[in-house]
Amino acid sequence: VKPEDSDPDRRSPRTRSRSADAGTVGNSAARSFPGTLLVSKVIYLGLAGATLALAAVGHPHPGRGFLVEFGVGLGFVGFVMLAFQFALTAKFRWLSRLVGLDVLLHFHRQMGFFSYGFILLHVGILISAQPEYAAYLDFRVDVPRALALWTVLLALTAILVTTIWRGDLGLSYEWWRISHAALAALILFIGLVHILRVGWYIADPWKQWIWVGGTAAAVGLLVYTRLVKPLRLRSRRWRVSKVRPEPGRSWTVTLEAVDHRGLTFEAGQFIWLILGRTPPTAIQHPFSISSSAAREDVLEVTIKELGDHTSRIGEVKPGTVAFVEGPYGNFVLDGDVKEAVFVAGGVGITPVMSILRTLRDRGLPLPTLLIYGMPSLEDATFLGELEELEEEGSPPLTLVPVFEAPPQGWTGETGRVTPEMLERHLPADHPGVRYYVCGPEPMMDLVETHLRERGVPLTRIHSERFNIA
C-alpha cells in the first residue's frame, strides 16, 4: 500500500462508484455546505473568544480601564486572526471541496487586512490611553524590544503592500509567496514572544504552554503545507506527453501518470501544477482540469496565454516532468442535480469541458445547457467538440455560442452575455437545477446577480474565479 492510499483526503470512493449509478449524478457531500461553513465559523470565532476567556480566567490583577483592556483585547484577537491565516491557506482539500478555495482565499485576504487594522488599533489605542506604553516602541528604553516590535509593524505593512501592489512593485509571484510565508512566520514568532514577555494575562505556565502550542500549530501548518505535502508529491511523478495548440491562444497540456494510478478527481476541479521542477517549489500555478474524470492516469489542462507565466506554456516539451497537487475546488456536480446550466466565458470553458466529457464518458443523461461567450470564432476553444457533443446528444446538451465579434452570416447570440440573453435561454428554475459560472469577473458578477434576482439560492450557484493566485 502506498502512503497516499492511507490519506483520507486522496481517496474518493464517491467518484469511483458514481459511474455505476446513472440515476444519481451528483455528489451528496456538497449538500452539507452551509452546515460545514457554520461549524468552521464557530471554530474560528470560538477560538478567538476562547483566547480572551483564557486571558481573563484566574487573572489576579484588577482591570486597567476600558480603553486599555479594549486595546489589549484587540491585540489578542489580532494575533489569533493571524494564526488562523495559516490554516486558511493550508489548502485542505476537504475544506476547498465544501467552500471553494477561491472563497477561502478571499476570506484569508480580507481577514489579513482586518488583522492588520486590529494590530494597529492595539498599538494606537494603548498609546493614546496610556502614553507611557509608547516605551514599548522606544529604542532608548529597550533596544531589542523596540527592534522586535518595529520589525513586526514593518513586516505587517510589507505583507500588506506587497499583496496589494505586487504587480506594480514588479515582485514575481514566486518571491511574493516566499516572502509572504517568511514574513508571516516572523510576525507570529515575535507576536508570541511579545505576548509572553508582557505576560500580564499569561503569567501562569499552563497559559503560556497553550499559547506556545497554538502558535506552534499554526507554524506547523505552514511547514506541512509548504514542505511536507510537496515532499510527499515527489513519489507521484507525471510526465508531459503532449502539448497541443487550441484556438484562442490556448494550449492543452496532456500529463501521464508515471508508475502510479493517477489522480482521482471530480470533473470541474482544479490542480496546482508544477512543471519541470521538483517540489517543494514556489513555482506552481492553479489550473482547471479539462479532461474527463473517467480517466485518472491521464490529465489534461488547457491554459490560455495571458501574458504572465502562461505565455511560455507552448514551449513546454513533451517528456517534461510534472507534479500535481490537488484536486481542489467545489465547481462540481453536487447534490440531487437534475439539470445543469453552465455559463462560461473564454478560458472559463475548461472546467465545464471536463464535466461534459465526464458525463459523456460515463453515459450520464443529465440535461445540460451551455451559454458560452467567446471573443470571436478564432478564439473558440473546444467549440468543435462541443458541437459534436450537442449533435450526439449524450449528455443532452443545448449549446448557445455567444460571439462578441460574430463570424459572417452568424444568426445566433452576439455581444456580451446580458440579463436579457440569459432570460431567453435559461430553463425554468427548480430545486434540481444547478448553475455553474466560470469566466471573466464582470461576466460572473452579471450572471450571479441575475440568478440571485431570479431567486436562485447561493447554494445552487457554483462559480470559479481564476484570480485566486
Binding site: 483592556e69 479594549f70 478571499h106 446577480t449
Partner: peptide
C-alpha cells in the same frame, strides 16, 4: 457573488471579534 459572500463573512467575523474584545475589556474591569 462568492467574493462578496467571503467579504460579508469577513466583515461579520471582524465585527464579532471587535465586540468580543470590547466585552473582554468590560468584564475584566468589573
Amino acid at each position: 457573488m462568492k467574493h462578496i459572500f467571503a467579504l460579508r463573512m469577513s466583515i461579520g467575523s471582524a465585527l464579532f471579534l471587535v465586540v468580543l474584545a470590547a466585552l473582554f475589556a468590560y468584564f475584566v474591569n468589573i
